[in-house]
Design a protein around this nucleic acid. Structure first.
Length: 126
DNA sequence: ATGGTGACTCGCG
DNA sequence: GCGCGAGCCACCA
């Protein structure tokens, strides 16, 4: 598991319930403004808790990451998209049937530089 | 090494 | 607002 994946996972874990961020924003915070697709790739590859006890779909709140427009952007895996919708709604995120989230209200503002540095640095230890 | 594949973004018409 | 095309990045075969 690459350092990049771990950084993504650790950062996503900091998004509180009820808030969301975007692939691009996550990439930006990690110092890679053009790695949005790679962030999506990292989240899509989250495995089961049995296969990876540390970072898996249970421990990483992948559902809190949507596209830059604030919409669930999983086009090809309908089942996964529906799960994301359900999870977000359960967390109290305002989202309509068009999978559109109210960003004004639920956009995560991110971390302070100190906290960010902590993630970037400690990821190297895993 | 190399080309193909996305849970991405932006800019243009 | 919508569809397209073109960058961009990490992976994988």
């Amino acid at each position: 598991m690459s350092n990049f994946y771990i950084q993504v996972y650790r950062l996503v874990q900091r998004i509180p319930a009820g808030k969301v961020s975007s692939y691009g924003r996550i990439a930006n915070m990690l110092g890679r403004p053009n790695a949005a697709r790679a962030v999506g790739y990292a989240l899509s590859s989250l495995s089961s808790a049995k296969k990876n006890p540390i970072y898996n779909s249970q421990t990483v709140p992948w559902q809190r990451v949507v596209n830059s427009q604030g919409r669930i952007s999983i086009r090809h895996r309908v089942k996964t998209a529906e799960k994301q919708y359900k999870l977000l709604k359960e967390e109290g995120v305002g989202i309509n049937l068009n999978y559109q989230i109210n960003l004004e209200k639920h956009l995560w503002q991110g971390l302070h530089l100190i906290e960010l540095d902590d993630i970037l640095h400690s990821a190297a230890d895993d």
